[in-house]
Design a protein around this nucleic acid. Structure first.
Lengths: 219, 219
DNA sequence: ATAAATTTTTAAGCTTACTTAAAAATAATT
DNA sequence: AATTATTTTTAAGTAAGCTTAAAAATTTAT
């Protein structure tokens, strides 16, 4: 399976999980930066390979085989992110970009070795769960976005759901990092802003950020 | 530049360095497992890009630009080999195969990070020199093949020039490893065999092996 | 030196992964 | 419900990187 196919399958998987949940060719095309025509074309080819279920004008779905493929790629991506994060001083954004390329050139054997070396981690540095070698995600995600966190309570950052450079630069500059503790000092309901305290600093985040920073209660 | 181009340029570089020194399209085609027609075609395309010097029926040569490209790929390959060798329990053959893929998906930034992490090594686990970030090989190779080593003398293994699985399996089973010490107990001139002593074992190697195992005098 | 063998090049054709433009279907709006 | 807007599909075409087959040049052998 080519890189183009792997990226296509991965995009269907990710779009299917996202809140918009739009897996129509046009939307897949948008995230992959290709034309809708190319996406429709690819969808039809992958249907013939029993990777995608394609019905005209309908959202694309992955077959069992397609799902396994997607999870294998996601696993490799997140293992690479974990390894690069551990070994090198690189921004989360850089790590993501490198992993995006390496994921397609990684044998199952190498993936196993990376996983083993890292102690079979269950989460990558963004807090995203790492599927196991069978393509299963065994952890359950109890985290909530900062926008829904309760005033006065303390939380632990569990996920940074983004691949945007500026966002990661901001996080890195302000201690917003997987595992760190934040306290919600105020929720500005009408303006959808959240004031938090982290590392003895007070910062106010708008909803663009509070919707992609996930936290778990700090018990 | 695509993977196909990178591999083509690398093949010209490597064939140019090898003792046969045959960089005609047919020979490049053979190592890349493509047809001669495809190789000629690629050579002409790369000439237009100022990467290769192409003259009909002549050996292919790299331009300055092509040479830089080749050394950059070789650098990334050898850095990957060094990193994988350090981190994971994988055979030299497996490491080579993985590096063969990863080398094409590695930014200059990541290469720098790998090099730095490893302490800017000058040699990979095969003993091959690692070009620096400017594409220069600063080390000088004083090593000789085992076939030319002197009876009674002791040597340190400096290079294993191969990518053959069986060869590496044999080496690994017999302690023939970069940095290890061997003593030449006998050179069988007419049959071109070499008897060596390593790790208190005596083994006899034919010329297929003694021509690709390189050593330095043990002073 | 010439004939035979080999290698290289050209030519035509294929697949993958795209593109743009137009046609067809779906979704949104009034 | 009909019109308009949007999205999806089809159709035709392109570039990269291959293939095989035949023609042209070079190399080898006699």
């Amino acid at each position: 399976m080519s890189v183009a196919i792997e990226n296509f399958v991965k995009a269907i998987y990710k779009n299917g999980k996202s809140k918009t949940n739009n897996t129509k060719p046009g939307n897949i095309a948008k995230v992959l930066n290709i034309s809708s025509a190319a996406a429709t074309d690819m969808a039809q080819k992958l249907a013939a390979k029993n990777v995608v279920i394609y019905e005209k004008y309908q959202p694309l779905k992955l077959t069992e085989k397609g799902n396994k493929m997607a999870l294998s790629i996601v696993r490799k991506h997140r293992l690479w992110e974990s390894l690069l994060f551990k070994l090198f001083d690189l921004s989360l954004h850089d790590i993501h970009k490198e992993a995006e390329l390496l994921e397609h050139q990684t044998s199952d054997l190498l993936a196993e070795k990376i996983s083993e070396y890292l102690g079979n981690p269950k989460f990558d540095p963004h807090g995203d769960p790492i599927p196991n070698a069978d393509g299963e995600i065994t952890t359950i995600d109890t985290s909530i976005p900062l926008s829904k966190a309760q005033e006065g309570k303390s939380y632990i950052i569990s996920r940074l759901i983004s691949s945007d450079k500026e966002f990661f630069d901001f996080c890195s500059a302000n201690g917003l990092k997987y595992g760190n503790t934040v306290t919600i000092s105020k929720q500005f309901i009408s303006s959808k802003m959240t004031q938090i305290s982290i590392n003895n600093n007070t910062i106010v985040l708008n909803s663009d950020f509070t919707n992609i920073i996930y936290v778990n209660e700090n018990n």
